[in-house]
Design a protein around this nucleic acid. Structure first.
Lengths: 226, 226
DNA sequence: CTGGATCCGGGAAGATACTG
DNA sequence: CAGTATCTTCCCGGATCCAG
C-alpha cells in the first residue's frame, strides 16, 4: 500500500505491517514457526494466493522474514521470521489483549482454528501451582492445536509435538473454549457446553483464570494416574 | 473494510482498527486529546475528508470514540477517545517501538509534525536525575509541539500549555530531532546539525538517552539561574 | 469558515483458472 | 505444491459541492 509519508515511528511501522493480511501472516509465523506457502494459506482462510505472494515479497524486502529453500528432495520453500520479524510479538500481544473482549461479538459464521488460541492462552493463563512438577496440556489435536506447559509459575506454548508428555487433552466447541480461556465461563460451565477434557482435569484447572464463583469444578474429580 | 471472519482476538482487533488511517486517528487523539474534525485532518496529511468521516463513524460504532457537540455558540463537534479507545495506547506503543528504527529510512519528502515525537519521547527518554526538582521542556512551539516534564524519575508528556513553566525550548531540523530522541546522535552533534536549545540545556540532558561516548555535552556548560 | 456529503478515476483486494 | 495470470469488485484518494 502507499506510504503515509510521515516522519513518525507509528506511521513507519504501519507502512510496513499495516496492509491487509500482513499482521495475520506475522501471527501465523509467530505461533507456528516456519511454514510453507500452503500451510500459511491454510491459516489465513480467504486470502487470495496472489495477495499472499505479494505480502510475503514485501515482508521479505523489509527484512521481516526470509525465504528458505529446503534442500531435501525438491525445492520446497519455507518462510521464517527474522529477528526483526519476531520483534513484532509485542504488537501482536497488544492487539490480542485489546481484541480479546470483542471475540464474542464476531460474526457467527466466523472460522475457528485452535492454534489461534495459543497466544491468548500464553497471555491469559497463569500457573497457579508453581511448586508442582511441570505439566503439559494439549489444546485441540495434532493437526490443529498447541501444547501448553506450566512449570515454575510460567506458561509456555509450542506447536504440537509428537513426543510431548500430555497430562490432559482439551477440545470442544469454539466459542466455549474462547470463553473458558478468557475466564468468561468456568470449567464446569464449559463442560456443560460440550468441552471435553481427557486426562487430568486438575492440570487444566492449574492454569485456568479463576472465575468469580468457586464452582464445583474447583475441587475436581480424581487424578487418574494417567 | 471486510471482516476477516476469524474467531481470533488479533483478527478481531484488526477488524476494528486495521483499516488504513485508523490507527493514525487513534494516535492523534491519544497525543493531542479531543480534537475537532479539521484539527484531526491537519494531523493526518493526505487523508480524504470522506474517508476520515467514514473512519470516525466506524470507530464511534465500535465504541472507540465519541462525538461531542460543543454547546458554546455553534455546533462544533469534538472527537474524544473513550476508555476503550485509550486502551489502544499499548498497541500504539508497540508499533512505535518497532517502527522507530525505520524512521530514518522514510521517504525524504516525508511530512514532519513535532507532536508526533511526543509518544516516542515518552517511551525513549528517561529522567536521569530523579532527585532534582521537576523540570519541563517544550519541544517545538505552541502550534506544533509538546511539553515534557521530568520529575521523580518519571517522564510525562502533554500538549503545549500556555501556563507551563519552561526550563528549555528545543527546536531544530526534523531528522536531527528524531535522531537525538532515539539516542542515535548526542546533543553536541545535534547542535552542530542545527538543533537549538533556548534556556537550560541541562534540563534537556537530564532526559536524553546516554549515547555511547560520554561527550563534552555531558558535563555541560552552566546552569544559568534562569 | 468549519464539517461534512457526493462523484468519479485509479488501484488494491478477492475469486478463480491456469502453469511449472 | 507453489505460485502466476486474469478478471471482477470494491476501496481509497482527490476534487468539488453543500449545509449550518
Amino acid at each position: 500500500m502507499k506510504s503515509y509519508g510521515q516522519l513518525c515511528a507509528v506511521a513507519r511501522a504501519l507502512d510496513i505491517v499495516g496492509d491487509r493480511w500482513t499482521m495475520l501472516v506475522i501471527r501465523e509465523l509467530l505461533i507456528q514457526g516456519p511454514l510453507r506457502f500452503g500451510e500459511l494459506q491454510g491459516g489465513l482462510p480467504g486470502v487470495a494466493t496472489n495477495l499472499l505472494t505479494q505480502r510475503l515479497r514485501e515482508l521479505e524486502e523489509h527484512g521481516v522474514l526470509v525465504r528458505e529453500s529446503v534442500r531435501r528432495s525438491s525445492g520446497s520453500t519455507m518462510y521464517r521470521l527474522t529477528e526483526r520479524g519476531e520483534a513484532l510479538e509485542g504488537v501482536i500481544r497488544e492487539l490480542l489483549k485489546w481484541g480479546a473482549p470483542t471475540v464474542s461479538e464476531a460474526p457467527a459464521e466466523s472460522i475457528f482454528q485452535m492454534h489461534w488460541l495459543s497466544q491468548p492462552a500464553r497471555y491469559l493463563l497463569k500457573d497457579h501451582r508453581p511448586q508442582e512438577p511441570a505439566s503439559t496440556i494439549r489444546f485441540g489435536n495434532f493437526d490443529d492445536g498447541f501444547d501448553l506447559t506450566a512449570s515454575d509459575g510460567n506458561i509456555e506454548v509450542r506447536p504440537c509435538s509428537r513426543d510431548a508428555q500430555l497430562r490432559a487433552v482439551v477440545s470442544g466447541p469454539r466459542q466455549v473454549l474462547v470463553g473458558l480461556l478468557q475466564g468468561a465461563i468456568d470449567l464446569a460451565a464449559a463442560i456443560a457446553c460440550g468441552v471435553e477434557v481427557q486426562g487430568e482435569s486438575a492440570a487444566l484447572i492449574r492454569v485456568l483464570p479463576q472465575t468469580g464463583t468457586p464452582s464445583s469444578a474447583d475441587q475436581d474429580n480424581s487424578l487418574p494416574s494417567r
